[in-house]
Design a protein around this nucleic acid. Structure first.
Lengths: 176, 176
DNA sequence: TGTGAAAAAAACACGTG
DNA sequence: CACGTGTTTTTTTCACA
């Protein structure tokens, strides 16, 4: 799926990545005009970025509202301390729940941060009662339900790579 | 940007959406084979879904690690209670911070849930000190730093739309 | 690395049920 | 009026200079 090899990313690549995050269906020639590169250059670079795993994949971004998902919530989960078995059990459980978009083991008071989507508050409540809270080991949960979206970017920042030194600077990463 | 009109979504559309969430660069004919539809059908449906705003846009999904973003954190922010001015001020501030991928006003103990990415812990710490904590009104923050990714889907679930009744069922949404 | 040819895919218009 | 078919245009891919 994602081939990870060492790669050098210059400012042209960054410009390409920035644009491709906003519009994954832009043609190579149109992209070339934006970043002042030839069509073939763009084509080769995009291919390289994909092969290197910098671009994981392309995807359609859906509007949750439009498919009837009106509720999004962040749920902090605390597990009882009874060994690692519960951790694995919990992780396997959430992996199978389509309502769970994301799950991270985190530092802080909670063990896991889980992002959940549901049709409405009733559906969310039902899901919590019948599924998440029933996973063995789940001791305590705190739900933060989104009531207003201030900002939502699927777009990763690329500024930190950009250098004050403008010209032929290249930055090297060694992913894994 | 997104034209929102009423639309009927049947099970074929759902199959298309599911696939397009996984691979936004699949061709209409390849998609047609998967969902047992003709190429022209797929083309028309995808166009319709875009026009209706169900598909917001297409995008390249990058690997955070590959571009040097090793830290992701969920930060709960509590604002001091001094009127709505602070809320607006905070919301405008985070909107301009590229490290902030997401920000939601939420229910619960915190006022906002903010998702942040950074190069490493040092960069995250610096960002918190020099930027987020300096936004006027920010009284208290709780950071949960991701230490292990259990699951991360940009893919919204579509099951809730699917009906036990299989055949020509159509589901109607009225977005906004 | 750019250029041009070949292949593929998307967009479009048409005829048919 | 929705659907498939065929045509045209665009875009990608590939070989070569």
């Amino acid at each position: 799926m994602h081939a990870t090899k060492q790669i050098s990313v210059d400012r042209h690549d960054l410009a390409i990545l920035a644009e491709l995050q906003r519009d994954g269906h832009i043609t190579n020639s149109a992209l070339g005009e934006k970043v002042h590169l030839s069509t073939s250059q763009v084509g080769r670079r995009v291919q390289r970025l994909q092969d290197a795993g910098v671009i994981d994949h392309f995807a359609a971004v859906l509007d949750p509202m439009a498919i009837g998902l009106g509720v999004m919530a962040f749920v902090q989960v605390v597990l009882g301390r009874h060994g690692d078995v519960q951790g694995e059990q919990f992780e396997r459980a959430v992996a199978d729940m389509p309502e769970v978009l994301e799950c991270f083991a985190v530092t802080g008071e909670a063990d896991y941060m889980v992002r959940i989507v549901a049709q409405d508050l009733a559906a969310f409540s039902t899901f919590m009662m019948n599924h998440l809270l029933r996973v063995p080991g789940v001791t305590n949960v705190k739900s933060n339900i989104a009531i207003k979206k201030i900002k939502q970017l699927n777009v990763l920042p690329l500024d930190h790579v950009t250098q004050p030194n403008p010209s032929k600077q290249k930055i090297y990463f060694t992913p894994a």
